[in-house]
Every structure is written in structure tokens, then in C-alpha cells.
Simulated scan of single mutants.
Amino acid sequence: MKKIVVLLTLFIAFSGWSQSEADFFKKANAFFETYVNNGKVAYAKLHKDSKDLDDVLSLAKSISTSKDKADSYQAFWINSYNLSVIKGIIDNYPTNSPLDNAGFFEKTKYDLGGNKITLNEIEHKLLRAQFEDPRFHFVLVCGAIGCPPLINKAYLPETLDEQLETQTKIALNSTFLKVDNKKKRVAVSQIMEWYKEDFRMNGTTEIDFINKYRTDKIPNNFKVRYFPYNWKVNEQ
């Protein structure tokens, strides 16, 4: 935590952050450290007392971000998405799955960055539509076990690229893939089916994308299949 505080202090001075942005990233980092463990969220604890969550989301209301400062912009919206998913689960707690709550992703609006905005709008309009980066799919956590694991720290502008790389590597070397060498096929998360265009940019294949991050490479002649998404809530 001390290291994070020092980094935040330095970047306020040298990267043009506003004090409100610095406060947001600091509180977001403290929140994730407190309530996330091994990719799971302490929803029951937060349901009893949501003050820490409410405080960090309150900071996010008036923060103005610009695509011109891409790292700050992306880090803000990634954290805001993950925090808002947790808020959505808490508001409907107890719940077995985010999908059990009508409009969870496409209708419920959150007050963020000076706008009333849905989770889908953050993901598809503010991030995917603005930046061609498939790695977003490994850091935006939709509140379910089938999602990539939620980390217990905030995404920060100065470490964002490294964090995106790390989480993509973790996913593609573990639960997002099931390799069957005998049948020459690989089963991958449905995320890669739903967003095929993101993983086939610039003429690459899904296997090309996987092999960029995977230690044990997948042969190019393997068939790609998709396994069902686990929508059970990612609760501790």
C-alpha cells in the first residue's frame, strides 16, 4: 500500500492528474485490497456496510477523463466498471447471478464521469469502440465466475499496460482454455465467441491471439470450440 501511495504522489506531480483522480485511484486501490481475495468479492460484508464502496463511487461522479490521456482514461473506466458491477450485485443482494437481475448490464445506470451510464455503455462505447485492444476482456469483470478474475488492486495509469498484459497471460494460461491434444482442438471461454472480431483484428486468428500470450503454444491446425459461460456470482 505504501508503494501505491508513493506512486500516486509522484504521478500527481508529473503526469497531470487532478487531485480528484488521484483520490479516486487511491480509494479504489484500498477498496479492492480490502474486499477482493483470490478473484472473489466479499459481497455479504459489503451488503452490511457499503460505505467504502459508496465513497469511491462518489468520487467517480465528477471526474472528467479524456481519451487524449489514454492510460488515465482507460484505467478510470476499467475501475469504474468493476466497482459498478459490485454495486449492482450489492443492490440486488442476495443474488445467484448478475443475469438474474433484469437490465443489470444494459439498463441500470451509474453516475460516473459526469454521465449517467450503463455497464454496457462503458464496455462497448467508451472502451471497445475507442481503442482496439482485446485485452479489455481480461480486466472487465462482470460479477460472475466465468469472468476473468478480479484483482485485489486498482488499475493505475502508470502500470496499466503491464496489468493488461499480466491478466491476459493469466487467463490464457489457465481457466480460459481447455486443450485436447488427442482430438486436436482447444475449448475456449465464450468471451472469445461473443467478441470474435476483437480477437481477429489485422487478419489474425483466435489461435494467433492466444499464442501471443500462452506459454504452451496451440498448434495452428487445432479446431476452436467454446465452453459454456459460468454466470454464478463470484462471491467469497
Rank of each mutant, 00 (worst) to 15 (best):
M1Y: 15
K3Q: 14
L10H: 15
F11H: 14
I12D: 12
W17R: 05
E21F: 12
D23Y: 12
F24Q: 01
N29S: 08
N38G: 10
K40G: 07
K40N: 10
Y43F: 11
A44P: 07
A44F: 14
K45H: 04
D52F: 15
L53N: 02
D54G: 03
D54Y: 09
T65F: 10
S66G: 09
Y73T: 01
Y73D: 01
W77V: 02
S84F: 03
K87D: 00
G88K: 00
N96I: 11
S97R: 07
L99T: 11
D100Q: 13
G103N: 10
E106I: 13
K109Q: 05
Y110W: 05
G113M: 08
L119W: 08
H124L: 08
P134C: 05
P134S: 05
F136W: 06
H137M: 09
C142W: 06
G146R: 04
L150T: 00
K153R: 09
A154R: 04
Y155T: 00
L156W: 03
P157Q: 09
T159W: 11
T159S: 07
D161F: 15
E162Y: 14
E162F: 15
Q163L: 10
I170E: 10
N173F: 13
S174C: 08
S174Y: 11
K184R: 07
R185W: 05
E193Q: 09
G203D: 05
G203H: 07
G203Q: 09
T205I: 00
E206Y: 04
I207A: 00
D208C: 04
D208F: 08
N211Q: 06
K212N: 06
Y213H: 04
T215N: 12
K217V: 01
K217G: 06
I218V: 02
I218S: 02
P219G: 04
R225N: 08
Y226T: 00
K232M: 15
